[in-house]
């Protein structure tokens, strides 16, 4: 496999970011849940792509679609959204 060992900088940034979102949406757990769901879907599709499990006619989520879905969730949280952009390969 091409699995990379955890890179401390990216990993720590991701931990801090997820923690920040979790705290920010403590009163709105459905928003946090939806965020997790978007990432989960993206991750699952990336894995399928790598393994060649492509369903004909099915278009997996692109990074910009992930970004726009998250943008809808984080409407009034510009700081969270711009920080999210720092994680995306080509947002």
């Amino acid at each position: 496999g091409q699995q990379q060992a955890g890179q401390p900088v990216e990993f720590n940034h991701a931990i801090n970011y997820v923690n920040k979102i979790k705290n920010r949406f403590q009163g709105q757990p459905e928003i946090y849940k939806a965020f997790l769901e978007i990432l989960h879907t993206y991750q699952k599709e990336q894995r399928n792509l790598k393994e060649g499990l492509v369903t004909p006619g099915y278009k997996p989520l692109t990074e910009s679609e992930v970004y726009s879905q998250v943008a809808k969730l984080f409407q009034n949280q510009e700081d969270l959204l711009s920080e999210f952009g720092q994680f995306l390969p080509d947002a």
């Binding site: 890179q7 997820v18 997790l36 989960h40 991750q43």
Partner: peptide, 27 residues
């Protein structure tokens, strides 16, 4: 200390792999 559920950890994993991809692209 953080109180992370498996779903939280999965999000951390996804975000950090995205960030690593981004870094690889920028190199």
């Amino acid at each position: 200390s953080y109180d992370f559920t498996p779903a939280d950890s999965s999000a951390v994993f996804t975000l950090s792999s995205m960030a690593m991809q981004k870094r690889d692209q920028e190199l």
